[in-house]
Amino acid sequence: MSVREVLRRIGLATFVSLVLGFFSLPLLWLAFTPFDSDPRISASLPDFTLHNFQVLMDNPYALASLRNSIILAAGAAALVVTCAALAAYALSRVRIPGRDVLLYVLLLLSSIITGTAAMVPIFLLAFNLNLIDSHLGVILVLTGGLLPAAIFVLKDFTDATPTSYEEAARVFGATPLQTLRHVVVPVIRPGLATVMVWTVAQVWGDFLMPFLLLRDPDKAPASVIMYTFYTEGGQPDLALISTFSLLYSLPVVGMYLFVSRRYGFRFHGGIKR
């Protein structure tokens, strides 16, 4: 091995370690700080304690907000997966003129629906429909925003399944809904899993819509409650924030692991080739 080669290797290793360190610091902070008796904004080996969790339990909103997050995420995921599956199946099997244009326009508009631009109209709409301070309102708005992308991904999966499966089911007397349930859904299950996980992750992390539409802190999800964790002095309450962050991220990680083990993600199926 020449000197150059050695130097090259050392250089590469250093570079990789730096990059790794840069990205792992926040994760280390997330892992250690909740157990630190003196939580700080930097990552350090904790002076071990479980006291921070005690503080968290005493906070009136923390646990309820996690429950609210679960309600919102589960509701939106169920609605998005169901509606997207029905719509994607129909769009993939029925010939409508301008179908692709329709999909692309929806996709474009969807980023506006849940974005800042539509904040005021959405608030007014929800207000007039009496959907302020209701989980249902948030679920409906988020579903509307996520549906186009979900339909887009799922349509690719349904397009890829041969129509002869469905025709076989039809010949044996299955109704369209039975065909969907017995044949199409099981065949595109990896796609449904992908869309479900993606929806949950989106809703779990969404701040703007619940912040806008939920006035009552008892109903606010974790992503909103997180912003209320300040000390009386106006400083971020790091003990609370770090502990809460850990609890907040665990369900999403758990879900990823579960779903990927159970169904296996097949993202390549959702990408236009």
Binding site: P162, S164, Y165, H182, V183, V187
Partner: peptide
């Protein structure tokens, strides 16, 4: 069916 269309 020609491709048998057995449900996979």
């Amino acid at each position: 069916f020609q491709d048998y269309a057995l449900f996979p």
